[in-house]
Amino acid sequence: MDNPVLNYKNSDLTASVNDLAKRIIPCLDVKDGRTVKGVNFVALRDAGDPVELAYQYSNQGADELVFLDITATHERRKTMVELVRSVARQVNIPFTIGGGINEIADADILLNSGADKISINSAAVRNPGFIDELALAFGKQFVVVAIDTKHINGKNYVHLNGGRIATEIETEDWIKEAEARGAGEILLTSMDHDGTKAGFDNTLLKKVNDTMTIPLIASGGAGTIQHFVDCFKISNADAALAASVFHYGEILIPDLKKVLKENNIEVRL
């Protein structure tokens, strides 16, 4: 085994960031304890048991998981807590839980059930101070701000409630505000690309990532392995998230990581 010890001890302590792997994140949309995937956020198909899927993904080499309860606002918190506990018992990688988190107590119980991070979307737009409160209570590393964005007349606007409600807030402005308030990470979903399988919105992702000081998770549009390569090469996002291409076995994570590595993108193998 190679041993770089001596090189390190005497070298300049300024180092590169290339030892941090780009993350591959399967996203599981959950409704009534089952995984679903919205195609353009409308039609839902059942793709299995979330805990079973989570376990399979961690064995395949997923770096992290995101669970979004798309109907959490109409359901009891209890279902999500049970899901989080089951996942935390069975998987050895970090995961984020989102959907219907509106108050500190929601976040607190999910974190104490084993979630590593919580994701907030509409609740943060309606009450931006919620980001500050969460960061203060749990540390910014627990707070993922998810944003659904759409191009309208050459600009990017934040959309709410799974994309159903447009706002007048420009996406770039909201990212800056969320960062300043204590977001630890941004999960940016392009609604124009989501469900199309035509590739990530690399233009937008690069634009926002170039000025960001916290990690960016790219989401929306993954259809092929090459789309992930392009996303990391062009935007330099920290992570890429996808759902259906993983759930239906169209892309296997080991194959994806192998190609990323061949393209000199740092991944965890």
């Binding site: 085994m1 770089p4 010890v5 390190y8 941090l20 792997a21 990688i93 000081t213 916290i214 920290d238």
Partner: peptide, 30 residues
């Protein structure tokens, strides 16, 4: 660098220790 440092980073041991038994040099940790 972006802060928080979030994700899987390579780790290199600088001395031998039983704490690292069976763990390849340069393994990623979260």
């Amino acid at each position: 660098v972006k802060v928080p440092h979030t994700g899987w980073n390579k780790v290199f041991r600088t001395v031998e220790s039983p704490l690292f038994n069976e763990i390849p040099q340069g393994s990623h940790f979260y």
